Simulated assay, not measured.
Amino acid sequence: MNEKKVFIGVSLAVLGFVAVLVINQSGALFSTMNYKGASNPSIPNYPINEQGQTYGQGPYPAGTTQVPDLISATGENGVNGYVKATDLNSNVSTPEEAYAYQKSMEELGYKSIPLYKSDGKTVIGEFRLYSSRRD
């Protein structure tokens, strides 16, 4: 029973990290994007890089669930670039992994992920996902 509570608590904490990420990054992580002739305006027409990854600001319009592979973000020292959507997930699958992830976030206060150019290969900086508990 306690493991379920820890897993649920950590899951909620991970959602909180993503919310803090959106708010902490100058409020500009999820802003609007022009569609450039998309046939269905509710589905973004993201550009595609040479690796076949979509990139841009998203999700847009509000209420859609489609997110590009590389999401526009402002990293440390004001560097603008893209983070991989997959890097924003905690990727935990057991209560033990969730607990370990939560402990590491509490100890460090953030999780650092690479900030890329739109090519999805060239690292240009660091993006930090801050813990919701910042003292």
Rank of each mutant, 00 (worst) to 15 (best):
residue 118 S to I: 01
residue 45 N to S: 14
residue 80 N to E: 12
residue 75 G to P: 13
residue 120 G to V: 04
residue 133 R to Y: 07
residue 59 P to R: 10
residue 85 A to M: 14
residue 111 K to V: 13
residue 108 L to V: 14
residue 9 G to A: 02
residue 36 K to D: 12
residue 38 A to E: 14
residue 12 L to I: 01
residue 52 G to P: 13
residue 17 F to N: 13
residue 95 P to Q: 02
residue 67 V to A: 10
residue 125 G to P: 06
residue 18 V to S: 10
residue 87 D to S: 08
residue 7 F to T: 02
residue 10 V to M: 10
residue 87 D to Q: 04
residue 120 G to F: 02
residue 20 V to W: 05
residue 95 P to A: 10
residue 27 G to T: 01
residue 77 N to C: 07
residue 120 G to R: 08
residue 88 L to I: 08
residue 123 V to Q: 14
residue 54 T to A: 12
residue 44 P to K: 11
residue 31 S to A: 11
residue 29 L to T: 15
residue 38 A to P: 04
residue 133 R to L: 11
residue 12 L to M: 08
residue 10 V to Q: 03
residue 22 V to G: 08
residue 14 V to A: 12
residue 47 P to V: 02
residue 23 I to D: 06
residue 78 G to W: 06
residue 91 N to A: 11
residue 92 V to W: 11
residue 103 K to V: 14
residue 49 N to T: 02
residue 77 N to L: 12
residue 106 E to S: 04
residue 94 T to L: 05
residue 110 Y to W: 09
residue 87 D to K: 05
residue 121 K to M: 02
residue 133 R to N: 09
residue 20 V to I: 02
residue 97 E to D: 14
residue 48 I to F: 03
residue 103 K to F: 00
residue 118 S to G: 01
residue 31 S to L: 10
residue 81 G to R: 03
residue 66 Q to D: 15
residue 120 G to C: 06
residue 36 K to Q: 12
residue 6 V to F: 03
residue 38 A to K: 09
residue 78 G to R: 08
residue 34 N to K: 09
residue 20 V to Q: 03
residue 85 A to G: 12
residue 114 P to D: 05
residue 25 Q to S: 15
residue 43 I to G: 12
residue 34 N to I: 05
residue 41 P to M: 05
residue 45 N to R: 14
residue 52 G to K: 09
residue 76 E to Q: 12
residue 63 G to T: 00
residue 109 G to H: 03
residue 13 A to C: 04
residue 86 T to H: 00
residue 103 K to H: 01
residue 93 S to F: 06
residue 111 K to E: 15
residue 97 E to W: 01
residue 87 D to P: 08
residue 87 D to I: 02
residue 108 L to H: 00
residue 82 Y to K: 07
residue 55 Y to T: 00
residue 73 A to E: 03
residue 13 A to N: 07
residue 129 L to H: 08
residue 10 V to S: 12
residue 40 N to T: 07
residue 27 G to P: 09
residue 24 N to D: 14
residue 43 I to W: 09
residue 69 D to V: 01
residue 89 N to R: 12
residue 73 A to G: 07
residue 1 M to C: 10
residue 60 Y to N: 13
residue 61 P to I: 01
residue 126 E to R: 13
residue 128 R to Q: 14
residue 72 S to Y: 11
residue 28 A to S: 14
residue 13 A to K: 08
residue 103 K to G: 00
residue 95 P to W: 08
residue 13 A to H: 08
residue 132 S to C: 08
residue 78 G to I: 05
residue 27 G to W: 04
residue 11 S to G: 15
residue 123 V to I: 15
residue 33 M to D: 09
residue 112 S to I: 10
residue 51 Q to R: 13
residue 75 G to L: 12
residue 96 E to H: 03
residue 131 S to V: 00
residue 53 Q to C: 04
residue 91 N to V: 08
residue 101 Y to D: 09
residue 26 S to C: 08
residue 135 D to V: 03
residue 122 T to D: 02
